[in-house]
Nucleic acid binder design. Structure first.
Lengths: 259, 259
DNA sequence: CAGTGGTCTAGACCACTCA
DNA sequence: GAGTGGTCTAGACCACTGT
């Protein structure tokens, strides 16, 4: 009766993880509180340190806790989300504040925005960009890479593709400093007021380089938005790929439904 | 050991991971192809099996590969996304097809939809629901839990909250079978045609139970959408929390920009 | 310095898959 | 039965953080 083929034996690492998880969910371990050290967990649960470590990793992969080298493992703080919506492209908001959509959003949350334009190049359009801009692949496009910060913390990256015909000789084509109202004001100058946006949204785990540059902790995915700006005639004039960390950033759209 | 003071700063597991990653990105290892077994990797790179295993785990956590017990580790297939947009709430689409928004979307992709309503209960409104429905917390709401499948694969879960005043004695309050056009047709019957939707989007790693029930592989996040349906007078009449796996599902919105 | 997590080793056995 | 990944042990040393 004691031994048999396969009892529903739960691996030790999951048992330890489940115990910790319930102590977190019950509120016994609050946000910011340290977990017992791996060596203590090993002792308390009578497992090897590697097994305790595996348990902690399971929680890390769920985004419940995060480790700080040399300090300990802590219950993750629930961070306030900044949610970005369609109104950030509003002409009125731009006129009232003179700010770019990103700056306006961050200012609204009482934080300090910074945007670094790290590169402006002309490249052949990748296929998925050409599709969205009504070009054929390899057509040249201006490619602007921007990094967005709030209180000096990296928040998102945006890579904007602009047909050369749209950018012309305007600052869009080569100037890092776009002036008052920023990118969308310049599109308006060029004869492309934004009337409609298309936003294609997905989520995935960050690649190593993204994780490093956006300082994304373990167990946190990124949201990827392929954003396309469209003028009143239905002509797309720019596509931007945004990549943002999902624990501090989200989206919020209010959309009329057609009948 | 070769050097003593400051040997190469890159841990062996990351070196192995980087080597595999570049073989994947170069196309040498295509989607669906097996990686060398952990024991082979250990031998080839002259590390312990656990170290090779750690390397594989790094790739798994990036969503690049996935392990199948007893078979091997395989480069993940890029699966075609089903993207859900606002037009799925369109009255016209409903009239033309007689289908619920989900069924219409899945049919459009040539797959077979199934929706299981697993529970209908009346509960006190959680705070975040009460906020969105203009209620006070604890007000009773109908709570409908639905599971959505495409070709018998689980795709998403939706938990819909409806004020009892809205549901009345209609099928919304208690019937799993909602009839032609489904949920949004019934709201229309009750005097709440959908005019506007608000969609709040975030992403996170799945909890253990979500991972199991949605059959989500390692390294794949979920997208969470808090959807609120609003009538022409601006009255919200239902809020649904959707949870969907991010490797097969996405969102696609076309939104007019206010000036 | 002591204590923490990060990496690594060299084994072992279990659970699953497939020929 | 042979080969795969999954779990586990009992050590070891390194890197980082505090005092």
């Amino acid at each position: 009766m004691t031994t048999s083929s396969h009892p529903d034996r739960v691996p030790a690492s999951r048992r330890v993880a489940a115990a910790l998880r319930s102590r977190i969910e019950s509120g016994e371990l609050r946000a910011g509180a340290p977990l017992p050290s791996e060596r203590n967990l090993a002792e308390d649960f009578e497992v090897a340190r590697n097994t305790a470590r595996e348990a902690v990793r399971l929680l890390t992969d769920e985004g419940l806790v995060h480790a700080r080298h040399g300090k300990g493992v802590f219950v993750r703080e629930t961070r306030k989300l900044m949610r970005f919506g369609a109104e950030r492209y509003s002409h009125r908001l731009r006129e009232e504040t003179g700010l770019s959509p990103y700056r306006a959003e961050v200012a609204k949350q009482g934080r300090t925005a910074r945007v670094d334009c790290t590169s402006i190049t002309t490249v052949p359009a990748p296929e998925f960009i050409a599709e969205r801009l009504g070009l054929v692949a390899e057509d040249p496009v201006i490619c602007r890479e921007n990094w967005y910060f709030a209180d000096d913390e990296p928040v998102q990256r945006g890579i904007t593709y602009i047909p050369v015909a749209v950018a012309g000789t305007s600052p869009l084509a080569d100037s890092a400093n776009l002036g008052k109202g920023s990118l969308y004001a310049r599109f308006e100058d060029q004869g492309y007021p934004i009337a409609t946006i298309r936003e294609e949204i997905s989520a995935r785990m960050p690649r190593r380089d993204e994780k490093d540059r956006l300082k994304i902790p373990d167990g946190v995915p990124v949201i990827e938005v392929i954003h396309t700006g469209i003028d009143p005639e239905g002509t797309p004039f720019e596509t931007t790929v945004f990549t943002m960390r999902a624990d501090t950033t989200g989206l919020d759209y209010t959309i009329p439904v057609r009948n």
